[in-house]
């Protein structure tokens, strides 16, 4: 082999050994880095914390600085997931609204985001309001359990919330549908009575009210649901899984003062079969 051939062989072997060392054995470590250079799981955690922190602090400019340089494709699914889990764990409405605003900014357009950004407030068609069919309680995300401690949630010392809708009169119950189910549930459907004039005749239509908080309080606990998470049941619909025999107080928006309804979960009669009485309560309100 000629001299240049030996040189090339040495060069190739040296290159291979050197790349093995720099890429596999001793890859470079960076010091004084910034979030976009974090390893992927840490980056995801940074984004998650930033979204949660925006929910707590509401500081838009700081949030944008924190997310600077991070790919939107990474931010988007995390923001959506944080919003979903915040809804499921019953965070305060103002927190959910902030997170939804951030999620919307990054192009997420799910019903949850629409509800908390207020885009679903004027739904065009009212949903069916009474039904005789058995309504199964949905597991997520309508009925939510409140964590025992470390959160600002336990009623009645709740964080003040911002109503999404304009001022409305008090809700009044207009219908109640009872069914026999096991396990039992309590469902509510919130509607807005709206008067429109059609060919000089006034007609009343009922519009569902999404994004409203419904509270269920019992002797030693509370649960919260937000209307609109089960669109097939109507945008004003929310439901709770309930325990047999327990007495519940139902509130809308804030769990203070007199409850709008007090409900005891009773057993079905012998004619109705085995199980417990579940209820669908339809409440109506109108603009002041």
């Amino acid at each position: 082999m000629k001299a240049w051939g030996v040189l090339i062989v040495g060069l190739i072997l040296g290159l291979a050994a050197g790349l093995l060392y720099t890429w596999v054995i001793s890859p470079p470590e960076y010091y004084d880095t910034y979030p976009p250079l974090l390893d992927k799981p840490y980056r995801a955690d940074w984004v998650q914390m930033t979204v949660l922190a925006y929910g707590a602090e509401g500081n838009w400019n700081r949030t944008q600085l924190r997310l600077q340089g991070l790919p939107e494709a990474e931010i988007r699914p995390i923001a959506a997931s944080v919003l979903d889990s915040a809804v499921v764990t019953g965070r305060p409405l103002v927190t959910l609204q902030r997170i939804a605003k951030l999620a919307a900014f990054y192009g997420i357009d799910t019903p949850v985001v629409q509800i908390y950004t207020g885009e679903l407030n004027t739904a065009p068609t009212p949903a069916p309001i009474t039904t005789d069919q058995d309504i199964p309680p949905t597991s997520t995300p309508t009925a939510t359990a409140i964590p025992p401690t470390n959160t600002p949630l336990p009623a009645p010392t709740l964080t003040p919330t911002t109503p999404i809708s304009p001022a409305l009169s008090e809700f009044r119950i207009v219908s109640q549908t009872l069914t026999c189910t096991d396990p039992p549930h309590i469902a509510v459907s919130l509607m807005l009575s709206h008067t429109i004039t059609v060919r000089r005749r006034e007609e009343v239509e009922w519009l569902p009210l999404p994004g409203r908080e419904v509270w269920l309080l019992w002797e030693d606990g509370a649960d919260r649901a937000v209307t609109g998470f089960n669109p097939e049941m109507g945008l004003g619909y929310a439901d709770f899984a309930v325990a047999p025999g327990r007495v519940y107080k139902l509130y809308i928006d804030v769990p203070r003062g007199a409850p709008i309804s007090t409900i005891q979960v009773e057993p079905c009669t012998a004619d109705e079969g085995e199980g417990w009485i579940s209820r669908l309560l339809v409440f109506i309100t109108q603009e002041d």
Binding site: V6, G10, L11, L13, G14, A17, G18, L19, Y21
Partner: peptide, 21 residues
Amino acid sequence: RLLWFIIGLALGVGLALFIGW
């Protein structure tokens, strides 16, 4: 030839360190 090989090897390693880091 050994000298050329060592020179080639050294150049290769040097080039790889530059590329890899």
